[in-house]
């Protein structure tokens, strides 16, 4: 949801299918960002190349911010799922529009998420 809101705020339109790997997001360095997120998540042999490609696209500071974001969301997901936090009231309606479209309601945690 924040991807859509924040891209709209700077007059860009992010393709939300990129969230599930089905499209290029259509924002600057989207391909390198997605490849880095996937490689960093897997922590496999593809990470070195993905890191180098993203560094070339967004610079050292951008790469550090990207690494921080991936690290933070890995743990945010653990905190959310291990505690079973309810969906935020003000996000329910906004999320409804794209949850089914992206197949997010098929994630196991959809059933474990109070409020959905």
């Amino acid at each position: 949801m924040l991807l859509g809101l924040s891209s709209g705020a700077i007059d860009e339109t992010a393709d939300l299918q990129s969230v599930i790997g089905n499209a290029d997001a259509g924002i600057q360095a989207a391909a390198e960002l997605s490849a880095f997120a996937e490689a960093a998540w897997r922590q496999d042999e593809s990470l070195g190349g993905a890191r180098a490609a993203l560094r070339a696209a967004v610079g050292d500071a951008g790469l550090v911010e990207a690494a921080q974001t991936v690290a933070v969301f890995r743990s945010l997901n653990i905190a959310a799922d291990s505690s079973g936090i309810p969906l935020d009231e003000d996000w329910k309606d906004a999320a409804a529009g794209f949850v089914g479209e992206l197949g997010l309601d098929e994630f196991p945690t959809a059933a474990n998420t109070p409020g959905y």
């Binding site: 924040l2 924002i27 960002l33 990207a66 969301f73 992206l102």
Partner: peptide
């Protein structure tokens, strides 16, 4: 260094994974 949409793409892709 990164725009908000760039950060949120990383965040959303990681959460989906």
């Amino acid at each position: 260094a990164l725009s908000r949409p760039q950060v949120e793409l990383l965040a959303a892709r990681t959460s989906a994974l």
